[in-house]
């Protein structure tokens, strides 16, 4: 019970014969060895496996690899092809937007689509925007600041302070 699929991942074309029941996240991690995409809850709650399929952020633990046939996929590895951090990655680094880092690839991919759709989101829009991504370390505040930083950088306006909040 296999099918042949062709997918483009971070600009590179791959053809593979896969079992119909193979989940997209396993294809990415195991067949393509792109382990930046994480498996957290495996029940489409936590968002650690978030990738972009044709530009839309989706949870790759709840999509079959065969469903991705003919699609363009972006994973966290594709964000900085030259090894230089992009605006979002820099925002997470500068604002301590991660502790353990497990949720970070999913957060980055989700935030990529969020800023694509809404380049200047309000804090509330950011919080709703990442409501499908769980982080057990940061309490989200620094992730929100990281996305605000990236938004400012991409729009070419003055960057917000990266000083931590002490309250």
């Amino acid at each position: 019970m296999k099918n042949e699929i062709t997918i483009t991942v971070n600009g590179e074309k791959h053809t593979a014969e896969v079992e119909n029941r193979l989940l997209l996240v396993h294809l990415i991690r195991e067949n393509l060895a792109l382990t930046g995409t994480h498996i957290g809850c495996d029940t489409s709650n936590c968002g650690a496996c978030t990738i972009l399929v044709n530009g839309k952020s989706v949870k790759s633990c709840t999509i079959l690899a065969v469903q991705a046939n003919g699609k363009e996929i972006s994973t966290v590895e594709g964000l900085s092809p030259g090894g230089e951090l992009n605006a979002l990655q820099e925002g997470f680094k500068e604002n301590h937007g991660l502790h353990c880092g497990f949720c970070t690839p999913g957060m980055l991919m989700r935030a990529t689509e969020l800023l694509e759709q809404n380049p200047n989101p309000t804090e509330e829009e950011i919080r709703w925007g990442i409501s499908g991504n769980l982080c057990r370390c940061t309490g989200y505040n620094n992730i929100v600041k990281a996305i605000q930083y990236a938004s400012a950088k991409l729009r070419g306006v003055e960057l917000p302070s990266t000083e931590p909040d002490f309250v």
């Binding site: 968002g47 839309k56 952020s57 989706v58 949870k59 709703w128 499908g132």
Partner: peptide
């Protein structure tokens, strides 16, 4: 807005 989350709503 209240159905699941943004990624699930994309599907």
């Amino acid at each position: 807005k209240l159905i699941a989350d943004p990624q699930v709503r994309n599907m």
